[in-house]
Design a protein around this nucleic acid. Sequence first.
DNA 1: GTCTTATTGATAACGATTATCATTATCATG
DNA 2: CATGATAATGATAATCGTTATCAATAAGAC
Lengths: 126, 126
Amino acid sequence: MSALRNSKQRDAVLRNLSERYDHPTAEDVYLSLKKEMPSISLATVYRNLKLLESEGLILKITTDDSDRFDGHTHEHYHFTCRDCKRVLDLELRDGTDVNNLTKDFGGTITSHSLMFFGICPDCKVL
Amino acid sequence: MSALRNSKQRDAVLRNLSERYDHPTAEDVYLSLKKEMPSISLATVYRNLKLLESEGLILKITTDDSDRFDGHTHEHYHFTCRDCKRVLDLELRDGTDVNNLTKDFGGTITSHSLMFFGICPDCKVL
DNA sequence: GTCTTATTGATAACGATTATCATTATCATG
DNA sequence: CATGATAATGATAATCGTTATCAATAAGAC
């Protein structure tokens, strides 16, 4: 199983994500890194985002729009704006009253979705 | 504001979704409807899925894989299998002990994501 | 029945992501 | 160090889910 090697590009992707809180798309990361590393390729960004996600170092946020990435992996939740499509952090601390969430947040929350991931009963036995 | 007209195709899409619990993709619905309505077009299925979702009659479930649809709009949650990619219902009743969810469910839950939707503070004032 | 126009079916176009492949860089080894 | 194996890259073609286009059809108000 192919050992990982160091790569300036991968480091740059990870660092970029750890420094920002705006949940960028792959292209956002690419455009941002191009400034300091003009030769970087969009394919390399995609590749490393996938790799870093599989390593658990970043999170992929699947939205109606395009996929977004989060370099901060502590447990927290997200909000997507129906208008501007931005993704914002929503920290849900112990004791947070979900009914007051809208008020505390400032925006308007109209719905939510909760998705669980794992292995289904069928695949578990195979 | 163009009034909606009746359409056999739209009715068929809605009926198809209300009769199944497997969270089909647009293509799944298309292939299923083609049996009883051979002339239906994939574009028509996509169009009506989007329309029905905007009317609140069905739910769109965005996954890493492709979008899936649910004709049952009561509040409930979903599980995606990392292996087979299927989407299963997960009813979370009052009093459900989330810590026992894995046991009750039969599969293995390794993570989850919670997304809120609405209008962000910035867009709210515009 | 007639007219307006919402809806359809067929297909081209689009856009995000992935695959391909020759070249380059990493790094264990001699 | 120099070298060889191969992971990683950059450039770009290919893929695939979804949307746009447009002429033909059908709903339904009159």
